[in-house]
Structures are given as C-alpha cells and as structure tokens.
Amino acid sequence: MGEIKSTLELVMERTRGMVQSREEREQDIFRERARKAAVLAEKHLSGETGLAAFVERLDALSGREPGFDARAAARLHLARTLPLDGAEGKTALAALACLGSPHVREMEEAMEKMAGETEEAEKQAEARLAAELAGRGISGSAAVLRPRTDPGYEKARAAIRERARARIARLAEAAGQDTPRAGY
C-alpha cells in the first residue's frame, strides 16, 4: 500500500514542487554565483592569478551580480577547502586575511596545532619503532626508521587532521557569514 500513491498525494507533491521551485531557482542562482567565486579562488590558489587580481575579479563579480557578496562567498570556499599544509595553505590564509576574514589567526592556530601534534606523533612513532628494533637486538646509525609508514602514526595523523578539519570547518561557516573587519 505504501508503494502506491493516492491522487491527493500526487497533487500535494506537485504543488510542493511548484512552491519550492522558486526557492530552488534562487538557490541555483546563488550556487552559480558562489561557483564563480570558488573558481576565482581556485585560480588564485593554483597561482594562475595574483592576490590583487583575484580580489579585483571578486569585486567585479559582486558588481555584476547585485546583492551578491563575492568576497564572502570566496571566504567561505577558501575556508571550507583550506589545504591543511604546504604552500597552498599559506596562500589560502593570506587570501582569507586580504578578504577580511576575522578567523585567519584562529585557522592559523588550528594548522599550527595540527603541525605540532603531527610532529609529536611522528616522534612517538619513531621512538616506538626504535624500541621495537632494539627489542629484536637491532640498532645503529645505519638504520633509517620510517615512522610515516607506521600504522600507528598513520592513524594518529588521520585523527589529528580530522580534528583540525572540524575546527576549521566551524570557522569556515563563520567566515562566510561574518562581517569583514574594516580595513580590508
């Protein structure tokens, strides 16, 4: 019985569809605008456009799309997809700062914390491996340990990154909504 829909149910569904379609259209428009801002952000991260050109293009996009804050959309995208390490992470943070995100310092702190914890996990894994080898009677300067391939390290690293990602995700949502600081 649950599989066969009544005429009333079908009518209700269709009506609901018609009511939603306007909202959906608006959402589609917003998504398309946000996508354009995200593309500009990705081009900046990949080095295709410099920071000044990136911001200029965002502002031009806001100008073309009345009521759309391209800087806020770019902030949200950059913060949501923030690379957790490497040069791209630094580029993204610099861009976020330039776009007026008030959370850059907190994101930096989250990334620094993650880097510190990862380094500590690596040291612990190395000590564990050295102890394991010593237990087998093996030691010496010729032995190059590989803590990064240790399953314990990989697990710890994944958990550390997960925590950092969650913290940054919370900041990211705020980054999209917050009013940028004056001066940017």
Partner: peptide, 13 residues
C-alpha cells in the same frame, strides 16, 4: 621494507 639502510653501523645482537 620495515626500515632502510644508509652508511653506518648496524648492530644485530
């Protein structure tokens, strides 16, 4: 390989 080797001493037992 569980670990790698480079020039140096290797103590085994």
């Amino acid at each position: 390989f569980d670990f790698l080797l480079r020039e140096g001493d290797l103590m085994v037992g």
